[in-house]
């Protein structure tokens, strides 16, 4: 279980945002993804999750090992906390949801509709979903938004438990989670949008530039 990313270039709206990204995420490792807003963290994570195709390069991991967590939690307001979790557990073929409930301190909330939760509680529920996917590689996009300090602690514990069990996590975040983690800065890989810059591959629109020059 290891995710090797090799010379990956990703595009947003057809325009390259990151080029030649290479890193390895091994079992038991937490990698913090750093980079300013709009630098392509979300695009990179979505590409790694298989939601969009890369324009070049490879990702070695099996998509069946990856789970993706974003700002939108996929929670249904009219379903209870338990029903929300049980649904995702069933989709991933996992039996119990108790560990997820306990891990994110949702015990007293299981019968509340998700729509009645506070923003922080919703976020905790969204993160608890990760535990019922049973997948080893977590790709998380700003997971701590609207969490208080205690909840961030819960989240850090969950990540610690996950990697201790042989999992791995790639987390785009701006805050210090207090985890033993490596940092990966995507700054050097940003595509500058200038066609004169050396580019890994001719981007798909290069023909257009020539056609009109």
């Amino acid at each position: 279980m290891e995710m090797r990313v090799d010379n990956l270039s990703v595009a947003r709206g057809g325009v390259p945002v990151l080029e030649r990204v290479s890193f390895t995420l091994s079992a038991g490792q937490v990698l913090i993804l750093r980079g300013p807003n709009g630098s392509g963290k979300t695009t990179l994570l979505r590409t790694l999750a298989g939601l969009q195709p890369p324009i070049a390069g490879q990702v070695s991991a099996d998509p069946e090992h990856i789970t993706y967590g974003a700002h939108a939690d996929g929670l249904k307001a009219t379903l209870t906390v338990e029903e929300n979790l049980r649904f995702w557990a069933a989709v991933h073929g996992i039996e119990g949801i108790d560990a997820a409930v306990k891990g994110f301190n949702l015990n007293g909330l299981t019968h509340r509709p998700a729509g009645n939760l506070s923003a922080g509680q919703k976020r905790r529920l969204g993160l608890a979903r990760l535990l019922v996917t049973g997948r080893p590689i977590w790709l998380l996009d700003e997971p701590t938004v609207s969490l208080d300090t205690a909840s961030v602690g819960l989240f850090a514990d969950a990540v610690r438990g996950h990697v201790a069990g042989g999992g791995a996590a790639l987390i785009a975040t701006h805050i210090d989670l207090g985890l033993k983690a490596d940092t990966f800065d995507i700054g050097p890989f940003r595509a500058n949008g200038d066609k004169t810059a050396p580019s890994q591959q001719r981007d798909r629109y290069a023909d257009f530039d020539e056609a009109f020059s």
């Binding site: 979505r46 999750a49 298989g50 939601l51 939108a72 249904k76 989709v91």
Partner: peptide, 16 residues
């Protein structure tokens, strides 16, 4: 609705 709240992203990466 599933598109807006992110469920569709998660379903796309799910085993179904």
């Amino acid at each position: 609705l599933d598109f807006e709240d992110g469920s569709l992203d998660l379903l796309a990466t799910a085993p179904i």
